[in-house]
Design a protein around this nucleic acid. Structure first.
Lengths: 335, 335
DNA sequence: ATGAAAGCGCTAACAC
DNA sequence: GTGTTAGCGCTTTCAT
């Protein structure tokens, strides 16, 4: 059942049917009603591909994240989907992993599907900060469609970024630790992503401002894995001396909590711990975790709003938006 | 840059270009090479919409889940995406929520986008078990594309289901509890979904087989929310008497663990707890949770394999596949 | 092996 | 307000 069939049955031309479908005002109420009736009766749905061909768009946005089997990414996609759906857009989802080549491939793939916009979720798409050319594929993509980054900052035409103020957040946490008398704050991270760099910079700045030394062995690289982190801490325990942990992921922080329990350290008195993302892990942990909430919901909402402004209203939009974090205090700290 | 441009530049007809693009064998190596060169030089990518129009497919599968901001769903989507991507299919993702009307709408929406197949993830799409007409919209959808259900069972032509053997799993857990002397096993659930019904049935069957009574007040409905569950248990504590908990979700089980801690009950001696899904929560919990693993990865893989068999090889495929669960034993039980 | 041409189902500019 | 018609960019049948 296509537009010709409907036109024939309603005794009108296909142009009129098309107008009815697209809610054009230049159709008499009477014809409109008639056409609508025929459409309903035959359960007609316009062919999306043909429509896409004519219009050059199927109202689809591509979302790429490294791995949706990650609480943070899943949350982001959830927020994005909800907002986009509300505006009549569909999401085509890609999980690229963390390898450069696969990121590039996936971006190209979605581009070839003629998405209206591309959203890249996660700090990993900002490259490792050493090599500018890491993000060339994003600028290349931006020549075809607008690209929106969530929690990453990449420069280039037609690239719009929204990120959390991670610098400020870790700066404040570190300050708070210091204020409560912590002197050996272990910074635990799992990647060299844009966001991780911001977090580390905030940590270092706060130490510096307080006149504390920045000790390399208090920057501890691990994996975002509870058991791995716990075991690493147990292993390096002899050489490592710390009274508090600032982790860039909740999973890492919980690893530290598990370590403290095994070592019989009182939390937060002997070991204070702060996690990141305020995920469900923070609540499932015992004691419950103080965690930095990076306001993902806000970031996603702002991203979609700007996207709609750009795509449909052709309004000038902000290129980069920085969202302040919130420190959610629970039992693993006493500040 | 379209197929005509490439044809002109390569001095061939568009038919030949099309053949090259589609890897048809009836092109001389020489022409093929020439066309390929021109294509590469101009970074030509065939227009996906036009292709879709001609072929009637854009190699896209629709995945609908109630809510991707849920560890279980996110995991499922992750597995599905990976398998589908490997077979050259893209995923368009929809989160429908739990309301009937929105499920129906979302299914219709994706259908109108001309997906090749529809995958429904989650027990909620099987209806509440009382009203067969709840699932009519699925059978309706199956008239247009094959529908695959993950962890739900719905009858109808062109509907293929893959589900965990939840009955067997809860049967075994309940048996194990009984064997260890537990007499008052609290069954905690959060929905009347297909899967929840199977779980409850397994629980009841084991009690019955052991000659135990099935007590209505030992079936406790809650939410899959740690704090809510903990508080509900604290509240009903006076009237409720139980020595073990079998929960249909890890979040519920952790609520029970938190309750036990507040009440000072030893785990597992005074209160044994079993969760479900073997999610990251089971490990982040303290003590770590014994949990039923419903083998999501296996289910998703089997689903995609059958889908490919159906779509591309036109092989007869199994209609319903039941996957056995695995009980992952940790610290909240002593069996 | 290659090309010409007829669709695929829709949108939109133009004519009436 | 309504109809005619020319695309949109590709696939595929039928000649050659």
């Amino acid at each position: 059942m296509n537009i010709y069939d409907i036109a024939k049955l309603a005794n009108v031309s296909i142009a009129t049917v098309s107008r009815v479908v697209n809610n054009s005002p230049k159709v008499s109420p009477k014809t409109k009603e008639k056409v609508l009736a025929v459409m309903k009766e035959n359960e007609y749905t316009p062919n999306a591909f043909a429509r896409g061909l004519g219009l050059g768009s199927m109202k689809t946005v591509g979302i790429i994240c490294p791995n949706i089997d990650d609480i943070y990414m899943a949350k982001a996609v959830s927020y994005l989907e909800r907002n986009l759906h509300a505006h009549g857009y569909d999401c085509i989802l890609g999980c690229s992993g963390f390898k450069q080549e696969e990121k590039v491939d996936y971006v190209r793939l979605l581009l070839s599907k003629k998405i209206d916009t591309l959203i890249l979720v996660g700090s990993t798409y900002a490259g490792n900060g050493k090599d500018e050319s890491d993000t060339d594929y994003i600028r290349e993509a931006a020549e075809q469609v607008s690209v929106f980054m969530i929690n990453a900052k990449v420069s280039g035409d037609n690239i719009y970024c929204t990120y959390a103020d991670d610098f400020q957040a870790t700066y404040e946490v570190t300050k708070a630790f210091i204020r409560r008398g912590k002197e050996k704050i272990l910074f635990m991270y799992d990647s060299e992503s844009y966001s991780a760099r911001q977090k580390m910079a905030g940590y270092e700045a706060a130490l510096q401002d307080a006149g504390y030394p920045i000790r390399g062995n208090l920057k501890f690289k691990t994996k975002n894995d509870i058991e791995y982190t716990r075991d690493m801490l147990l292993e390096y325990n002899r050489t490592l001396d710390f009274d508090s942990v600032l982790a860039t992921e909740d999973g890492i922080a919980i690893g530290a909590v598990k370590y403290a329990k095994i070592k019989g350290l009182a939390i937060p008195e002997e070991l204070a711990v702060v996690g990141y993302n305020n995920s469900i892990l923070a609540i499932s942990s015992d004691p419950e975790l103080t965690s930095v909430d990076s306001k993902l919901g806000v970031m996603c909402k702002k991203t979609v709003e700007r996207m709609i402004d750009l795509l449909e209203r052709e309004i000038q939009i902000e290129k980069n938006v920085c969202v302040p974090c919130e420190i959610v205090r629970r039992c693993t700290t006493d500040f």
